[in-house]
Design a protein around this nucleic acid. Structure first.
Length: 280
DNA sequence: CGGCAAACCTGCGAGC
DNA sequence: TGCTCGCAGGTTTGCC
């Protein structure tokens, strides 16, 4: 589930349950996820209170009142469950548990284990990888057409893959990459450096729009998520092209409707979905 | 250095 | 029913 909007939604859901509650125990159910889990972190955080939560790209950061904290990445299949005492259940692939003296606990479940949790300190987290090379937040003011034109300048790789580079812009993944390129009418196969200033402006705007809309939709169905125990997929019904191979694209009267519809191609090992008429 | 394939790991749906 | 294959929202590594 995790691109920027989903991570933002998880971050917002964590705020009321993780903040300002003394953490009884940070429990690791195995020694490693994608990377080794920080074995000394539970001792640093036991009995402490988390005082801040933030998001950077697809990463969630949380710091305790002693300036120690953790950074969490959900990988491809990572899911956070917030479980009230009467609804706690241990499930396969529950790797990390945040336990409190009372009230809900927090569980990180990740079947594929592409996700990870690492220790960070408030003083220096920004100086270490990947944060020291990460591009701007797409919803922030510093991300705009002018920045994008500069960042893409001279790049020979396709615009599709350039947007997946977290050094160009933080938090865009395969879905919103496809959606933003559709929204801006840009062919995903074009080289990144070939985009005009006007196209960069359009694309930057489309990225902001699609991400903001996804956060809005995701937020509205977060209640369902909490009650249905892990059933996700809030925004999927709003995709214009992603995972819609063969369907007519949403543009009314688009010739793709009487042709082959939305096309799927593979670029650098990842699926790209696009409408060859809208995006040219 | 830029670009790209492969690797990491498990689960699920399609097809036989 | 059960097997194999291909595919999955991400990132890192190593090779040209």
């Amino acid at each position: 589930m995790p691109e920027l909007p989903e991570v933002e939604i998880v971050k917002r859901a964590l705020e009321p349950v993780l903040l300002e509650r003394p953490l009884r125990k940070l429990q690791f159910n195995r020694a490693d996820l994608r990377f080794a889990l920080p074995g000394d972190l539970p001792d640093k955080l036991a009995g402490r209170t988390i005082t801040s939560i933030s998001r950077r790209g697809k990463y969630i950061l949380a710091f305790a009142d002693n300036d120690h904290g953790f950074v969490l990445h959900l990988g491809m299949s990572g899911v956070i469950r917030i479980e009230h005492p009467e609804e706690q259940s241990d499930q396969k692939h529950d790797h990390v548990v945040w336990a409190f003296d009372e009230g809900p606990r927090i569980v990180f479940n990740d079947a594929r284990r592409f996700g990870f949790l690492q220790a960070v300190h408030v003083e220096d987290w920004q100086d270490s990888a990947p944060f020291n090379a990460m591009g701007p937040e797409p919803l922030g003011n510093s991300f705009n057409g002018e920045y994008l034109a500069e960042a893409l300048s001279g790049k020979k790789a396709s615009i599709k893959s350039a947007l997946l580079d977290q050094r160009v812009v933080a938090g865009v993944g395969n879905i919103y990459d496809c959606e933003a390129l559709y929204m801006s009418g840009i062919d995903p196969r074009r080289s990144a450096g070939s985009l005009s200033a006007q196209e960069c402006e359009k694309l930057a705007h489309a990225i902001k729009t699609v991400l903001a809309l996804a956060i809005e939709k995701g937020g509205s169905s977060l209640k369902d998520y909490k009650h249905t125990d892990g059933n996700l997929g809030y925004f999927q019904h709003h995709f214009a092209v992603y995972d819609r191979e063969g369907d007519p694209c949403p543009k009314s009267g688009c010739p793709c409707g009487t042709d082959n519809g939305v096309q799927r191609i593979v670029q650098h090992g990842r699926s790209t979905f696009f409408c060859p008429y809208v995006q040219n």
